[in-house]
Design a protein around this nucleic acid. Structure first.
Lengths: 414, 414
DNA sequence: CGCCTTATTTCATGACGTGATTTAACTCAC
DNA sequence: GTGAGTTAAATCACGTCATGAAATAAGGCG
């Protein structure tokens, strides 16, 4: 998100953007509050506000207070100014959700995916079907949609057309964007890595609110992370930053599915945990075909089963070491542990994880970091993806399309 | 380095800053070149340029070219607009260097430090003496000094007055800034971690030039790093970001001087390498009281001595794993290996280090990353520290003091 | 020496943010 | 009720800025 500078018009756009961000996260606010929060003069707030209201992005929402003076008029975002869609391309299903501007869900659609059949074509079909379904279900015209955010597993190469490199899916440079275009959609698309979109969801609405520097650590079958620096997602030079799972925590250790050895993921990923438990017991895998119930079973077994406890203790230790590395390197205000396996582990062992992290990190940065659990659950990928077009709106993209059937159209100003 | 926005005057400052950065790193340039490089209109370049010339920051430096048209007038920074001082507080000495704006050395001074006597008082005395010495030696009046950058070991807490937490020195919240003030200096001070200043030196003038995302990995007696994100040094929430040395690469491994175990530093720091070699041989430490010659001796012994070769091979492997972690997490364009021990290792084994890093990192980000050696040598700490006040100047700090005896003072404009 | 070419400056214009000033919208005491 | 008091918001006049267009400067070339 570069900020072009130069002309005096860009300045206006910047100020407008600052004001929108402020309002978005602190609704409702009076013009006066906004002036304080943004540092802009009351006069400027008044001007920018008029513009925003006439565009329909912002609406007045009643007045409040008055101990003797003119009451403050409260301002809100207009949730119906436009809609956004979030797509979560998961291992077993595609989920599509329609939100209004304030991220209230308006419609949902799920498309199951055969775990062993991840052809890009299937995924594209699922997404397109989901888009049509939520638009119909929510009774929203596509012209009112600001954009569609899509969270996918794997690295997304942002170019003129986004390319997806999916390790898990065995995708190699899949041109998802142009495939969707070929499928007929004309909605603005924002494609990003699912861990990053989920991180952004936590950053905006979950345990990360207000953080400038944070790492959202995600543990599912595999291990990933979303890195927040200076208040926004860090992507690195080719958008693959945050691949935390393949950090070496044990040189010469267990072989990882990435081909290397000693990776963090080879110890704390759900698959690895179950595998370690299996080889310790020497028996067959735990009950339940899916990892989720198997891991839950392992965790509840730990109370009585020494081998299960041993595996989990080891997991906590490796995880703590991995988190400590993040603390030392990034010096974040917050580490947020998520992903379905991360939540299972965290619910049982957060204090132990904190202690392990303490042991492996430097005193000073550790003392400045809080380690918490995600608040939004594992379904936040779609939510986070849907924030991408909202982010663009807040950053001042020119009114996209005519967006908004629901505007109060009193443009008679002056 | 926040960029305050709001008024139209800030816009001017921003444009001025963009122009200065461009000119600083691409001297000399004509106004036309600048217009192209910055995206500003020729008219604006002309205006801003006039201002800069009248202030004395920029000077015209001859014209060039002319295949039929008016020749381009070349512009340069005025190296004598003001001076900056860089201080390197090392383990065995304090080094103070005086530079002009283009970082040409004008004077140097060294103050030896007893390795076992790192009292803050001694250090402050040394710095103050050094400042006086270089100013005298360089025949520069203190009013012409834009600022003093000081690179120290340990974490620097940037508050209203910088506090230094030095692990190595056993410093705990030493108020270095106010101590120097109490010592009588009135020069603007910029205190930062030495690894970060060295990283900035490489970023500006060394192997990091032009990189937007890079990590400068420093190996000396200990191990540190300087992280560059989006073109500038990343500091994290309390400026301790970049503590790479205590990343766990071997859970339950060697005890580290930080108190934890399995830290990268416990394997690839010079002290650790020598220690590992010592315990492998079972004999006394290598010849040479200082680590530097001992490590050099170990490296040259590796050609004939199997134990030495074994230790170094292990070191390469651990180092590669550590670097791989940086590649995965940060997805940088470049990893730059430095520090005196890093250079010794790198000169002998860079290809092996690259290979080890490849084995432990993901294919895609590894392919996008080049791994190189530092170009400026271990003395770049002072140089990098001295860039701090220059950075401030380029970012558009109001002309600090009256800076510059050497200005052409024709301020008669319109 | 005049014409051509290219770099730089000048000029008029339109936007913008802001402090000061007005106007708007209420409360409250009487 | 009604006027004084109080606070929020809008308006105004002003100064600053970047910019495209036009003018000017500075050289080459025939």
């Amino acid at each position: 998100m570069e900020r072009k500078r130069g002309t005096v018009r860009d300045l206006r756009r910047d100020n407008r953007s600052v004001l929108l961000w402020s309002l978005y996260f602190d609704q409702p606010m009076s013009r006066q509050d906004l002036s304080q929060a943004t540092g802009l003069s009351p006069a400027s707030v008044s001007n920018v506000t008029r513009e925003l209201i006439s565009e329909g992005v912002v609406v007045e929402a009643g007045s409040v207070d008055s101990d003797g003076g003119r009451p403050r008029v409260l301002l809100r975002m207009n949730p119906d100014y436009g809609y956004v869609i979030g797509v979560d391309v998961g291992e077993t299903r595609i989920r599509v959700e329609l939100f209004d501007l304030m991220m209230t869900v308006r419609a949902k659609a799920d498309y199951p995916l055969n775990p062993h059949e991840h052809g890009a074509g299937k995924v594209v079909d699922g997404i397109l079907a989901g888009l049509a379904a939520v638009l119909a279900d929510g009774a929203v015209d596509s012209s009112a949609v600001l954009g569609v955010g899509i969270g996918v597993p794997g690295v997304v190469e942002q170019g003129s057309e986004a390319l997806v490199h999916g390790q898990t899916y065995d995708w190699d440079a899949v041109p998802l964007e142009s495939m969707l275009r070929a499928g007929g959609t004309e909605l603005p698309l924002y494609i990003d890595n699912g861990a990053k979109t989920m991180g952004q969801a936590e950053l905006w609405f979950g345990a990360g609110r207000g953080a400038q520097n944070a790492v959202i650590a995600l543990i599912g079958s595999g291990v990933g992370a979303s890195i927040i620096t200076n208040g926004s997602t860090y992507r690195g030079s080719t958008s693959s930053a945050g691949e935390w799972g393949h950090t070496t925590v044990m040189v010469g250790g267990r072989t990882c599915r990435c081909g290397s050895s000693g990776c963090l993921e080879a110890y704390v990923g759900a698959e690895a945990i179950l595998d370690r438990y299996g080889s310790l017991r020497g028996g067959p895998p735990l009950p339940g075909d899916d990892q989720e119930s198997a891991l839950a079973a392992l965790i509840s077994a730990a109370a009585t089963s020494p081998p299960a406890a041993e595996v989990l203790d080891g997991t906590v230790r490796y995880l703590g070491a991995g988190i400590a590395g993040l603390i030392n390197l990034f010096n974040p205000e917050r580490i947020i542990l998520g992903g379905w396996a991360g939540l299972l582990l965290g619910e049982r062992s957060l204090p132990a994880i904190r202690e392990a992290a303490r042991q492996h990190s430097l005193r000073q940065p550790f003392a400045e970091t809080s380690i918490e659990l995600c608040r939004l659950g594992p379904d936040a990928v779609a939510l986070g993806a849907a924030t991408l077009p909202v982010e663009r709106l807040l950053n001042g993209a020119a009114t996209p399309a005519a967006a908004g059937t629901n505007r109060s159209a009193s443009l008679t100003t002056g």
